[in-house]
Design a protein around this nucleic acid. Structure first.
Lengths: 215, 215
DNA sequence: TTCACATTCAAACGTATGTTTGAAACTATA
DNA sequence: TATAGTTTCAAACATACGTTTGAATGTGAA
């Protein structure tokens, strides 16, 4: 057992560097040498602390996963404590607020982790297929259940679909993976301020959720 | 000049195999050997026909880009020919119809190309940064302009944001990159039928677009 | 059939990858 | 200061990567 300050510093530097590089270049596009150079540590340090590149990937997520889950659950808890029958707007607000808190707090991972999550949707790694649902399953269930109560005119299936749309739009917007940037030279939506993003998001998502059922 | 049937067959087999593999494993995660084995061609064939792996990536997109752009433009043209003042619902319908046509027509790339586009949002390759906006800029401008007319109560910026949300949700849904799948063991939204997806999408997107302005 | 060209192929190219090694340097306890 | 355990380091490991080569094969026109 060491846990010396210096040892922690090394493994944390690796995690910080890897988190950023995985966002920028993806898992396969990020080499061990790039990570260790960026973190200013010897290349063997990754295997020493995390066993393998896969192990590092897992560790990068595990560091952020629990705090973010706790945050979102705390927000829905607080909402349901304050209001007996929260509406769709309240629930969206609690959900967006969670992402906003995460994005603005570097201690939780900040925007980097939001982007990493957004990338993980599309670029799945076997390592995440089991660990993420285990921890975030509860989060989804809680918000989906609250939405179902607030939107009794919708079937369970339709509520899940709308929650899916909501999550896609929200993470994509916060992560700055501007879909339009791929299609336009100078998109008008390049504001990076998360508060501005959430201000634009709210009316869109609330209206979308509360819309009449399909058909 | 050869353009023999066999030569075409080889380069097309490579394109078909690469398109699928790039969706599954991304650009960096897909090796030349995997592509050529999957296409049942010699490994040197990729460099012979496309110059390099980058050249192949470009070719995979170039084959699909133009037909899809033509399709979406044709749909907005038809709409504006039929209706003098199309509403948000009409415009969303035309946009979704384009993705639906693309997704259901293997000759246009089918769902595979939809997924490839969805992946390209998050995993940008320098090669796409210039070619995509050049061809899709017009598409975005046309739909954004039509939406602006239909939603005069919204600022230009807000229209662009909402179009961005719309596009994120739509592509994510069609591509089947189920965000909730990363978070739940058995999401209730695993229907893969694009028609069913668009039925769920429509009311959500139309309501979101027509919502009152922020603040 | 001949010939010029297009296409295929097995093999090798140099480089980059993730990982391992074993010794050196450091740290904390006695 | 001596010693045991932790951490760092340069170097090398085997393997995989994208690419190139040069000969073999196939193809269509003269």
């Amino acid at each position: 057992m060491a846990e010396s300050a210096k040892a922690q510093e090394t493994s944390v530097r690796i995690l910080d560097a890897a988190e950023i590089l995985f966002v920028e270049h993806g898992f396969d596009g990020t080499s061990m040498r790039l990570i260790t150079q960026s973190a200013a540590v010897n290349i063997a340090a990754v295997n020493y602390y995390f066993g393998s590149k896969d192990g590092l990937y897992r560790a990068v997520f595990e560091r952020r996963t629990e705090p973010f889950a706790k945050l979102t659950i705390a927000n829905i808890d607080a909402l349901e404590r304050e209001k007996t029958a929260p509406g769709a707007e309240d629930i969206v607000d609690a959900f967006i607020k969670s992402a906003l808190q995460l994005g603005s707090d570097p201690a939780l991972g900040g925007l980097t982790f939001v982007k990493l999550l957004a990338r993980a949707y599309v670029e799945p790694h076997p390592i995440l297929k089991e660990s993420m649902p285990r921890r975030y399953g509860e989060v989804v269930r809680r918000y989906a259940a609250a939405l179902q109560k607030a939107l009794p005119h919708l079937s369970e299936t339709e509520v899940h679909w709308r929650f899916h749309f909501l999550t896609s739009a929200m993470f994509s917007a916060f992560a700055g993976n501007n879909v339009l940037r791929l299609f336009m030279e100078q998109p008008k939506t390049n504001a990076r301020d998360p508060m501005q993003v959430s201000r634009m998001l709210m009316p869109f998502l609330v209206a979308g959720l509360t819309a009449p059922a399909a058909n």
